[in-house]
Nucleic acid binder design. Sequence first.
DNA 1: GCTGTCTGCCCC
DNA 2: ATTCTGC
DNA 3: GCAGAATGGGCAGACAGC
Length: 977
Amino acid sequence: MSTIGYGKRGASNLTWLRNKMVKTPAKKQSTLFSFFNKTPTRGVALSSIKAVETRKRIDNTKGKKRKVGDVVDITDDETSENSKRTTLHKVVRENDSDKNTALGSTDFELTDEERQWLFREALAANRNYCGVGECSSTHMNNTALNSAQSLPKYKVTQERLVTSKSVVALDIDRQPGMVKVEGGSGDLQLTTTSPAVTHSVPVKKENVISNLAEIAMPSKGGVLFLDMSQTFSELEKESGRIKNSFVLIRFIWRVLCESQDELIEAVYLLMGMLAPSYENIALGVGSASLAKIIVDTTGSNRNTFRALASEHGDMGEAAYRLAPKQRSQMFVVQKKALRMSTVHSQLLHLSKISGSKAQSKREGVLRKLFVGSSPVEMKYLVRLCELNLRVGAAPKTILTCLAYSLYMYLHLNIVTEEEYVKYDLNQLRKDPDVQIATQSLLSAYSRCPNPRVVLETALRLKDIKGLAENCPLTPGIPVKPMLGKPVTSIHALMEKLQDAMKSNKFSADQSNNQEKQDAAVKYIKPEEKAGQEHLTAQQPFVKVEHDLHINTESPSIFCCETKYDGQRVQVHRLSDGTYRFFSRNLLDNQAWPDLIPMLQQSAAQAQARTSGLLSDEVGTANLDAKAKANAGDESIVRVSADAGNTSVSFIIDAEVVAVRRNEKKPEQRAILPFQTLSTRGRNNVEVGRINVQVCLMIFDIMLYDDRALTSIPLLGRRRTLQRVFDVIPGCVEFTDSIETSSEAEVTAHYRKSIVIGEGLMCKRLTDVYETGERGDSWFKLKKDYIVEADAPAKAQPETGESCKDGEGAEKSLCGDSLDLVPIAAWRGMGRKAKWYSPYLLAAYDRETGYYHSVCKVMSGFTDEVYKRFHRDMTMEGLSSKPSDYIVSDTFRPAIWFPPTRVWEIRGADLTISPVHTAGQGMVAEDSNKGVSFRFPRFIRERAAEDKAPEDATSTAEVVEMFFAQGQKIDSGIRDDE
DNA sequence: GCTGTCTGCCCC
DNA sequence: ATTCTGC
DNA sequence: GCAGAATGGGCAGACAGC
């Protein structure tokens, strides 16, 4: 008997065999083949053992005339034992009344080519679409049963099984509920267990496959999803970034050479994406439905799956382990090799499913994919569905590797294996030319985050180094926003800014670059005295002129802006006058139609002001009245348009905040908390029914009138901004900012900013807008980052207590922390699978003696601390929830703890919580809502003698603190004038 | 039509 | 959002 | 210092199920 199934095979075996294969001349491969049959490599072992039993039985039947139902093995040629020729015998029902199954008898041999191919397939382990073999009827039935049962919820009616001895091809066709027999004899009857549907599949003559190669070989070559899955697998095993990047480079290079038509899909999948983010693709498949589908398609059950997923901290791994590995033992199972483009299009298809029964339709699509995949493929299909590959290579790494691969392919013209292996990738890494190419691609992507555009541009131009220039900023396509880096004290901030000045970015090189990149802007290098290391605060150091005639000179080194607690938006106005809004993560954001007339007004006023055309109509426009108009109402647009050309394109960076702006008394106008903003509708927002008013706080401009401003310094961009927009109080404003070089002024602005907003942003005025994230020249300072010792006002006596506001005391300049009791925990996922994560924390109600949950924490623990807590607290663990713990019953932690510890937890704000129970009923009218903690993180464990659980922050204190900050927010009136 | 559950390259 | 880890 | 990973609170929206 020879059976080639598929299954997990040790890498060493696989490699060894593969090498053997490559090095063995074709003639000898038949020998190898039989060796393979008898060698219990993992995954074939089971079949091999059974093969022995089978062979014995066959020996007993020798000499008898074969009848239908007899077992004929695939053995070495019976007539010449030594020749090792392999024959497949097919014995089928002759004389069968059922015409569908009367097939006649066919014997055929494997050609060398076919055998070789089969061998390869077997070696490829999970390229599973080929399994050849036959066995005793008992064995066959069992195997068939197993095979079929491993399909989603099928069971096989045994007595109607195909009668042995045939090459049967099952084409599952990735159709749940559809199993098609393409060859063989008899009926294959499969019954689904849920729902109860029976498929009786007659084996038709026309489906008999006479040429094994025909069925077994993939329709075309190229790089398959299997190859991709194995690449992922390799990445996960290794931790070295460089080593892994070589694996990726090779893979992408292979795709370039062998499957270029699928390159884009491949790159998307590698990046864990399906489309540019601004296309707002969402699969609608989360962990719950994924779990269900995995359970279904592996024929497993919920508890087994859960246990496995929890043990490994990974649903993909659980799927991998549950996926049937012996599926094709007795069949030649042909499933079309899963192609990367198929995976991509099927997943994309998921996102397009909506409406009633959407869930089951999505499950159907996924089932098809899963059933048609091998374990490794399944593992990464699961990960892809989670859009979280976690193989240590996120989009940026992929893009870097893509640049290398493209470089090798396009610039070095490496297109064959021989050429490839000759190349030293380590050498390549150091090549300045390659580095330029890499930077160029990354830069292109950050300005045009659309893999398809970048790739197609590269392939069209056959060039990567010039990619950046050929992927310009485009209104309508979001750019990656600059992000701020947290700093923990004003002192640290000043140091960073000074350091930044020393490593002066204003080298001659850069200014040349800027001139090249942006012809519209002329940058004049600051005059430098010979030998001067860096510029001092006293001298004007930036001067930018461009054709907006903005004179920008400033003695200041940096600017400080209030950081508002709202939502980041990138606003684009296209030259046709349409507006688009993008979120921080570059999603197309439909939530702000009411901003359109405001911006239009602001731009029109500015235009009128600067061109001296300010009309009364524009100047006195009652925006509040107009803002209530529908977005489609052109009144404002028309009025503004009269004032000048307001369809000039722009891209600006801003924060949307919720405001109360329509109050008559100015002191009642206010910026509202983030939680209020978040209650606004998200899509199909109708201007007339908006319940939360918003104000746009603008702070940067990246493009104006189709000219990129990203390469001019912040100072120039700020001046441009102030020129092309007018403030409309409560609607469009600039962030409250100062330009300064003095620590005292920074501190003063910080004090102001933590009242108005959530902190301070500090930026060097010399910095260009570096789309993408690598330029960390923006710093953010928030109250809760600041540690006590570094607080600007050293008003707090050193008590060892956390930095908390005392009653009546002046507000401290550092954030809140709570002393909470860990009462439960879940098991971590991924790299935290060995530990508890997150922990559930509670405050103590001193009146009732109950513990009420406040938040979960997963941040702030080092691995060591995780280890220690896991070790110690497992022993303390309780199997069920103590009755004095008041927590939402939707929480199902893995373990509960007695109240023995107190942890200091730091966070930003206290929020009204629909799930946490501390202060329940005391903070929101007519509701049972409690209080929770935003951005919680673990700081340290308090010594038992220092603080007992009963001394932890009480629920009453939590409520008190909530109201204390609430007052602050409500009274935080903007200084409108 | 109401409620509960799940999802989100969600927003922070 | 925050934070830690490996490179 | 970067890149990656693992998670926090809480909202609207979309479905499923009654």
